[in-house]
């Protein structure tokens, strides 16, 4: 059952990933990106990371992709005709390089897994996923958490400064 779900979700995620990269119109890219995000969220649920699955849907599919859609509508990208990319050789080189990257990444990840897992039962039983994450985040990782909030503040300020029209 789990294997069937995994293969179906992986197929959905990868196929919509292919569409994200290769479709012509940006709106279609964004819609398939949302499908990819939802597939990844379901994979997170299969991995028993429920909190991250919800965050994935809310933050990525809900916020970031809407931001992309806003910008595409704002710029009227669908009316701008991009020149056709007729360089087959370049595409061929890219696909071959990407295949080589895959072939390189798989043995690396296999080699890392030859060591037996340590601390496989480190997670306390009887606590939900969210509770464990919150406990770790607000004790051990409190300083990185605060730094992340400062980073977000800096991003807000930077976006407003870049995005406003120059006044003269």
């Amino acid at each position: 059952m789990e294997a069937v779900l995994f293969y179906a979700l992986a197929a959905v995620t990868l196929i919509s990933g292919v569409f994200v990269v290769f479709l012509r119109r940006p709106v279609h890219n964004v819609l398939f990106m949302i499908l990819t995000m939802i597939g990844l969220a379901c994979l997170f649920i299969l991995l028993h990371a429920e909190f991250l699955a919800m965050v994935q849907i809310i933050v990525y599919a809900g916020a970031i992709m809407v931001l992309f859609l806003f910008v595409i509508m704002l710029l009227n990208l669908d009316e701008i005709v991009m020149p056709p990319e007729h360089r087959r050789v370049r595409y061929g080189i890219g696909i071959v390089l990407a295949m080589m990257l895959v072939v390189f990444l798989i043995p690396v990840s296999r080699g890392m897994l030859s060591a037996p897992p340590t601390g496989a039962s480190a997670l306390p039983a009887g606590m939900t996923n969210t509770e464990i994450i919150a406990r770790e985040l607000f004790t051990t990782y409190l300083l990185p958490f605060e730094i992340a909030s400062v980073l977000l503040l800096a991003a807000i300020v930077g976006t407003v400064i870049i995005g406003k029209r120059p006044t003269r």
């Binding site: 995994f6 992986a10 995620t13 990868l14 990933g17 292919v18 994200v20 990269v21 940006p26 890219n29 990819t36 994979l43 991995l47 992309f68 910008v71 595409i72 990208l77 991009m82 990319e85 370049r90 595409y91 890219g94 696909i95 390089l97 990407a98 295949m99 990257l101 895959v102 990444l105 798989i106 990840s109 296999r110 897994l113």
Partner: peptide, 26 residues
């Protein structure tokens, strides 16, 4: 390993997109 293979394939798709698309949004 299955998850890592999916992850590697998605990463490589992203690499293709970054290197060979001309649209900044994409």
């Amino acid at each position: 390993q299955h998850y890592l293979v999916v992850s590697a394939a998605l990463f490589s798709l992203g690499v293709i997109g970054v290197m060979f698309r001309r649209n900044l949004i994409v």
